[in-house]
Design a protein around this nucleic acid. Structure first.
Lengths: 232, 232
DNA sequence: CTACTTAGTGTATATTTTACACTTTAATTT
DNA sequence: AAATTAAAGTGTAAAATATACACTAAGTAG
């Protein structure tokens, strides 16, 4: 695996997965503690080498599952990183994915051992990471921030039923700006894709908010006709 | 290189490059004729295996140079394709780039032999291509169509000096819709990024159009402040 | 029953987008 | 040299969208 003096016609490669979550306050990124020599550091979500029998999308799903115990999660490839010297152990090209998950209070259920030491970090305050992982997380963040302006990915961070205030907080956290409550609600409701449920919050010490759900299948059919769901 | 029965920890990989051009009428894609057995077909721009000593971006630039004789061209990675069976000769993951070039009447000056048989095809009428190259070209087109809505990539298809009508034709070709001339001009000029030159077309049998140039450095500084140049 | 906290709502103004048709200029034709 | 042809270049009104802004409603806690 060490770099040879003659060109080799193959390289190792891996998938990396940047995982975003939201805790009702701010956007978070899941980072794992790297304990292997030669140094100890945080790193972005583990890459995994990909095997010959596995599509890269499937490899990314596997990595995500091993870390979180979750299946059927929003997961999208966003860039591949291939500088010669990006990895100290030799040439490793990585195909990077980002994932957006709903954080529930049960926490994560990692399947494999290496994923045990994973913690959420504020997206706007990422520590120094191993290798080129800061670059990867940055690009994932850029992608997420851009994407929310033309696709309804905010809902991926929320449970099935959510309040408009929760949704607004997500847009504010991702777009990094304050949004007017009335204008936000008007805009979101104008698309006709949110259904108000006959349910309200319980146990809150103030007026209870209505729950809504997002009509995903209706969105998909509108999207085919050129409709854009987004907010700048 | 054939698929083994046991997992291998590496795979071959390549870069592919989808090249767009514009001939004052429509958007074109450069395709090369594939003559190697076992079959003959058009394919998207040649992938090339990447060597251990080469960054993937550099490899893409090299491929582009070999095909066109051009350097310093718009070139951007957009997706990686890694299905197990995408290539008949075994597992090859490819990092795909798209490029936008100015077509001048000199034509192309391919450097390497394999690129001699390259022809421009209308982007909306691509023939059946080898491997998964139709998928790759489709995704490149989607990327281009999306990108033009928030970045001034149209200028990459034009010479230094261009008329507003040329520019409009590019937007129409890429966005696949008619645009009102007055509204288009007003919008484009409103950004303050086009400088009208003291030069006009010559030898045209109608009123001669003014030439303009695009102020790229000014655009870059505006972009840093959050400015978006685009058209939907 | 009072205080506290967040949910929920309307309107006026500014900005942006859209739709639309004629005059100007240069070369070519007669 | 006058008429024809072809694309360049230009303004305005209406519609749609985005923005700015402040109070009332409802539920809980004390």
């Amino acid at each position: 695996m060490a770099k040879g003096n003659l060109p080799k016609l193959h390289s190792d490669f891996s998938v990396d997965c940047v995982i975003f979550g939201f805790d009702d306050e701010e956007l978070k990124v899941l980072l794992v503690e790297r304990n292997e020599p030669p140094f100890k550091a945080w790193k972005a979500i583990p890459g995994n080498l990909v095997y010959d029998q596995e599509d890269i999308d499937a490899a990314a799903e596997r990595v995500l599952y091993e870390l979180t115990g979750l299946h059927n999660i929003f997961l999208e490839q966003f860039y591949s990183f291939g500088s010669i010297d990006r990895h100290p152990q030799g040439r490793v090209i990585t195909v990077a994915y980002y994932s957006i998950i709903k954080r529930n209070d049960n926490g994560l259920h990692p399947v494999s051992g290496y994923a045990k030491k994973a913690y959420w970090w504020p997206a706007d305050n990422i520590p120094k990471l191993a290798f080129d992982h800061n670059e990867i997380v940055d690009k994932a963040l850029q992608t997420l921030r851009h994407k929310i302006s033309y696709e309804p990915i905010g809902f991926e961070l929320l449970p099935e039923k959510f309040t408009l205030t929760q949704l607004q907080h997500i847009y504010e956290a991702i777009l990094q700006k304050r949004i007017d409550k009335r204008n936000f609600r008007r805009k979101m409701l104008s698309y006709g894709l949110l259904t108000e449920l006959n349910q309200k919050q319980k146990g809150v010490s103030h007026r209870a908010a209505s729950f809504f759900k997002f009509n995903k299948s209706r969105y998909r059919s509108l999207k085919k006709k050129g409709f854009i769901f987004g907010l700048r």
